[in-house]
C-alpha cells in the first residue's frame, strides 16, 4: 500500500517475455515488468488474456519463448535446474484452483511438513510444532489429518496460501487467491497474504475483482490478449472516478461495476484480420474507434506503446495516449 521509494531493491525484472502454446495464439506477447521488494502488483484482465501464463513465465515454471527474467539479479534461464529449485524457496506461486494444486493422496499435515523440511531445514527439528503453529495461524486447527477433498473451498485455499508462505518467499505470484470465497473468508485470506513476512514479500496479485485489487495492490497492470495495455497506481482503479483516463478496455471493465456511473457498451466483436500480427489487439471490441474513423488505420497497423499519461500511469492506446511523435 505504501509508496515504494525507488531505492528499494528490485526483486524481479522481466524483459520482452513472450510465450506461445503449441498450436495456439501468443498467450503472452512482449511483456516488460519490474517488481520491487515488498511491492504488491495487481494484474487484471479478461479470462484467457494470459495472466496465469505470465505469472508462470516470471517464475520460470514455463520457460519463455523469448525474453529474460532476472530474479534478485540472477537470470533464471542461466541457473541449473538444481539451483533454480533452490531459488524456488524464495519465489512461490499460488495456483488458481486450490483443489487441483494439492495432492489428493496426502494430508494437510503432510503437505506442510514437506514444505518445512524442504525450505526451512533450520526449523526441521521442530517441524511438528511449526506445522501446528501454521495451522493455528491459518485457522486450520484440527484439519491436519484431513485430505484435501475433505476441506471446504475456503479451507483448501488457506492450505495453499499457508504452504506458499511457509518458505517466507520474497516473491509470491498469487493467481486469483480469493476467487470463489465469500466476503468474510476473502478478507481473511487477503489479510494473511498482506501480513506475510511483515510486508516484505512482493506479490503479483492476479484477480478479476477490481475492488480487491485496488485494496491490496500498490500498482495495477491491465492485460489484454497477452499484452500489458495499462499500468497505473492502484488508486486510479476506481469505477466512480470518471476524471482519470484509461485504456478503452479498462474503461469497459470499470464501467461494468454495479456502482459505476456510466456503462460503456462495447460493440459486438468486429471481424478483423489476424489480431496478433500488427495493430492494437483490442481493436475488435474497442469503443474508441470505428473502422471509418481517421484513427482506425493507425489502430489496425501499429501496435501502440505504453505511453506515460501521468506519473506512474502509462497506457497503450493511440487515441487515449498518443505517442509524442504521432501527436506532432
Amino acid at each position: 500500500m505504501s509508496a515504494q521509494n525507488a531505492s528499494s531493491s528490485l526483486v524481479l525484472q522481466a524483459k520482452g517475455l513472450s510465450h506461445r502454446f503449441p498450436g495456439g495464439v501468443a498467450a503472452v506477447n512482449g511483456v516488460d515488468l519490474e517488481i520491487r521488494e515488498g511491492e504488491v502488483v495487481g494484474l487484471v484482465g479478461e479470462s484467457g488474456s494470459g495472466k496465469t501464463t505470465l505469472g508462470k513465465l516470471l517464475l520460470h515454471i514455463i520457460p519463455p519463448d523469448t525474453g529474460r527474467v532476472a530474479f534478485e539479479g540472477q537470470d533464471l534461464a542461466e541457473l541449473s535446474p538444481r539451483e533454480r529449485r533452490r531459488t524456488r524457496s524464495r519465489m512461490q506461486m499460488i495456483y488458481q484452483t486450490a483443489a487441483a494444486s494439492l495432492n489428493p493422496g496426502l494430508t494437510v499435515g503432510q503437505h506442510l511438513e514437506e514444505t518445512v523440511r524442504l525450505h526451512r531445514p533450520e526449523d526441521a527439528h521442530r517441524a511438528d510444532a511449526l506445522v501446528d503453529e501454521t495451522l493455528t495461524a491459518f485457522r486450520l486447527n484440527g484439519k491436519r489429518a484431513l485430505h484435501p477433498s475433505q476441506l471446504s473451498g475456503g479451507e483448501q485455499r488457506r492450505v495453499v496460501v499457508a504452504r506458499s508462505l511457509l518458505p517466507r518467499p520474497s516473491l509470491l505470484v498469487a493467481d486469483e487467491p480469493t476467487a470463489g470465497l465469500d466476503a468474510s473468508v476473502k478478507a481473511d485470506v487477503i489479510d494473511l497474504l498482506r501480513n506475510a513476512r511483515g510486508g516484505r514479500t512482493a506479490f503479483l496479485f492476479i484477480s478479476h475483482e477490481l475492488d480487491v485489487v485496488r485494496y491490496v495492490a500498490d500498482r495495477v497492470l491491465v492485460m489484454y490478449r497477452g499484452r500489458i495495455v495499462e499500468c497505473m497506481p492502484a488508486a486510479a482503479l476506481d469505477p466512480r472516478d470518471t476524471e482519470v483516463d484509461h485504456h478503452p478496455y479498462t474503461e469497459r471493465l470499470l464501467s461494468a461495476a454495479f456502482k459505476a456511473t456510466r456503462r460503456v457498451e462495447s460493440p459486438m466483436i468486429r471481424p478483423t484480420e489476424d489480431l496478433f500480427k500488427a495493430g492494437c489487439s483490442y481493436r475488435a471490441a474497442c469503443h474508441r474507434t470505428e473502422p471509418d474513423d481517421p484513427s482506425w488505420s493507425r489502430c489496425s497497423q501499429h501496435t501502440p506503446d505504453l505511453i506515460p499519461l501521468r506519473a506512474g500511469h502509462r497506457v497503450s492506446c493511440h487515441v487515449v495516449a498518443p505517442s509524442p511523435t504521432e501527436a506532432s
Partner: peptide, 14 residues
C-alpha cells in the same frame, strides 16, 4: 499431468 505435480515442481520439489 495433474496440476498438483506442476504446483509441486513450482514449489521447489525435485
Amino acid at each position: 499431468r495433474e496440476q498438483f505435480v506442476e504446483a509441486a515442481r513450482a514449489h521447489g520439489l525435485s
